[in-house]
Write a protein that binds this DNA or RNA. Structure first.
Lengths: 213, 213
DNA sequence: ATCAAAAATGAGTGAGTACTCACACCTAGT
DNA sequence: ACTAGGTGTGAGTACTCACTCATTTTTGAT
């Protein structure tokens, strides 16, 4: 489909319409610069209708955020970690990780517009930040922990502090996604698969010259 | 000093005053939500005075950005890379890198408020994005290249793609800084030096179990 | 001390802003 | 056909915004 949350069904059609429009406008101009007038036009409803479903403009942002959080956690991250945890068909952890990361990096294109909104609002609104930690970070940490400790037990990964491993994972992927989605024109990524391969390589083995140590 | 660019001298006192105030207000609420009225009050000048020095509100942002770019490049990043390149006193590359990264992560506290502004505006304004690439990224890439290839030649670092190495560097540091400065209360970093040590470890050696390979 | 140019001022302006509300419209059940 | 309750509307409201400009204040050369 052309939209990313048409399958969410605990919302009325109108609410979906408004959130979808809000996402488009917010991601183009940012929350503060977006106007409820624009959102209404984009959604094809009257401005008053918006305020029947959302008390304030900020409530639209919160409503959008909840949907985004569910999508990121339930559709983007959890399934891939679970896939790694349950995939017994192949011995090679590297291959599985590469496949997952490649999938996610490519899938993120669809979600990036609204991720922009989340990123920028997290920086300035304490309540959105709290939502982010609550709905996303705290739900992902235990799953990553489980994945990581399992792989350490299997002898596939090295027992560094789990937080550091998670930061390395997220940091490497994040900056790749930013380069790909924000700076696509000025700092293009030529061969996507090759660059992803290189990302995995650095993530797994670091940049030091091992033979020396 | 209490401010970060008092030593910039190609600006009049009034301009500095206004930029400093703008930085404070922008970093608290974001560019769009900040008002010229607030900036004027914070700077202790009349609102009209602002528009004598900056044609539009966006020009204030651009003016601020230029200063920030110079500070990041000339005071934060270039000196540390140069220090690595010229430091012959110690053999241990790891120690030097750790020292530099630790210094930068601690120093960033001062600059983070304005970095927030840059980060969020890059996402939404093409012209700010172009400035960022032009004034920061393109100035740092060749220096990092030189540093990296030198260390590879010395046998200290592994010859992965330079872009990947740079992304690993930046990505790991960036996410650390974000955790430290944005999520300080909810996801605290307990032992800073220990966590930095771990960051370096993962950056240099990765997370895979080497003995297995 | 004088005065012209430059700098600073802040009330004013018109174009929006988020949000409201009285009314129109639709849909059932009878 | 009638009506009551929910749904949608968009002109209206009180207010805020970036920006202007006539006026006042400061400056510095004589």
């Amino acid at each position: 489909m052309d939209t990313f949350y048409t399958d969410i069904d605990d919302l009325s059609e109108k609410e979906k319409l408004i959130l979808e429009a809000a996402c488009k406008i917010f991601s183009a101009k940012g929350f503060s610069a977006a106007t409820t007038n624009e959102i209404a036009k984009e959604a094809g409803v009257a401005e008053g209708t918006i305020f029947r479903y959302f008390k304030t403009k900020k409530d639209i942002l919160r409503g959008l955020f909840i949907q985004i959080a569910n999508i990121i956690v339930d559709k983007m991250v959890l399934p891939s970690l679970e896939k790694i945890l349950t995939d017994t068909s192949r011995k090679n952890t590297r291959e599985i990780i590469r496949e997952i990361i490649a999938d996610r990096i490519k899938a993120v294109d669809v979600y990036f517009p609204m991720m922009k909104v989340v990123i920028s609002e997290i920086l300035f609104h304490e309540d959105i930040r709290a939502l982010f930690v609550d709905k996303i970070v705290n739900r992902l940490i235990p799953v990553f922990d489980e994945f990581y400790l399992r792989k350490v037990a299997e002898g596939e990964l090295r027992p560094v502090k789990t937080n550091s491993a998670m930061r390395a994972f997220v940091g490497n992927i994040m900056i790749f996604i930013i380069q790909k989605n924000v700076f696509a024109d000025k700092l293009p990524i030529d061969d996507l698969d090759e660059e992803i391969e290189s990302l995995i390589d650095v993530l797994l083995f670091g940049i030091s010259n091992h033979t020396k140590y």
